[in-house]
Design a protein around this nucleic acid. Structure first.
Length: 291
DNA sequence: AGGCAGGTGGCCA
DNA sequence: TGGCCACCTGCC
């Protein structure tokens, strides 16, 4: 009887542009977010804050949703971020750059999510030296151990930073965080003493925001850029990880030997204010055998 | 069985 | 600045 949970019916997500299955999968589960789960029927179930949402495509590639947490469609649309993609594509120099042009044809459908800042910070502190499945596992552990259940969904929300500040580092380690436990504990303590910190990042220009985020333990340039891009909607942010560095050298051989910071500078100058979308296209292409 | 992974922090030239 | 290494954990 306890498992007889009744889900709302699927409905069209109003005003959502069409998206193909591959772009949807890459958007939800390609390394921007780590809290979307593929269901046996092929649909997706995801959670951010206390929003639990199911997503799937109808035969005409239109998005359908259902939300046991009662999250309204407008909130879901905002989270998905599809509305800003055409403007970002228009800002990229696709005509001038054949590499971008090809990537756009292939990955132009994927989106840049608008995720909650605090959760994005937690996820990317956990991401260092880890593959996507391991990051997912760490967050699942944290939610199970310290997060609150979202009633009627069977899922736990992630603990907020106030809650994390109460948790001992040793107990964070039990969530398989490894040395990242020290970073999470340190960041939680810092945020408890600086409650305006996360809020203050939003209004800062990108370079200042980046430097400021790097004051948090466990946050370096790469993680800071991920938080700015996926959490603060700063689409000019261009995280350079080992994958992106490799891929950039492959696509632009003259960049061979450049440091991460130099690659980030090149990206800012070459791609401009929508550099973050170009980064997602490059990353989405990481496991293409034809590369 | 060791190395490496979507990095960061600390230390040294 | 630029380079090197330790660091938890899990998987090939």
């Amino acid at each position: 009887m306890a498992n007889a949970v009744s889900l709302p019916a699927w409905e069209r997500l109003p005003e959502a542009p069409p998206i193909n299955e591959r772009s949807l999968a890459e958007t939800l589960d390609g390394g921007q977010a780590f809290r979307w789960f593929r269901q046996p029927d092929g649909s997706w179930e995801g959670i951010w804050e206390r929003n639990v949402v199911g997503l799937r495509l109808d035969p005409a590639s239109r998005l359908e949703y259902r939300s046991p947490s009662g999250t309204p469609p407008g909130t879901i649309l905002h989270y998905l971020g599809l509305d800003r993609i055409p403007g970002l594509i228009a800002a990229l120099p696709c005509q001038a750059d054949p590499v971008l042009e090809a990537l756009c044809r292939k990955w132009g459908g994927l989106s840049l999510l608008r995720q909650p800042e605090g959760e994005t910070l937690l996820a990317f502190i956990c991401s260092s030296n880890k593959r996507i499945p391991q990051i997912r596992a760490m967050l699942l552990n944290l939610a199970a151990a310290f997060g609150e259940p979202v009633s009627g969904t069977g899922l736990n929300a992630l603990p907020g930073w106030e809650r994390l500040a109460e948790v001992r580092e040793e107990d964070l380690r039990r969530c398989a965080l490894g040395y990242r436990a020290r970073h999470v504990a340190g960041t939680a303590a810092f945020l408890r003493g600086n409650p305006e910190f996360l809020q203050s990042i939003q209004e800062l220009p990108l370079p200042e925001a980046r430097v400021r985020l790097c004051r948090l333990p466990g946050v370096g340039p790469k993680v800071a850029d991920c938080i700015l891009l996926f959490g603060y909607g700063k689409c000019a942010a261009f995280p350079v990880d080992t994958w992106i560095a490799r891929l950039m050298v492959r696509h632009y051989p003259e960049l061979d030997g450049w440091t991460r910071e130099q690659l980030a500078t090149f990206a800012r100058l070459h791609y401009g204010r929508a550099a973050g979308l170009a980064q997602q296209w490059l990353f989405a292409d990481r496991s293409d055998p034809s590369d």
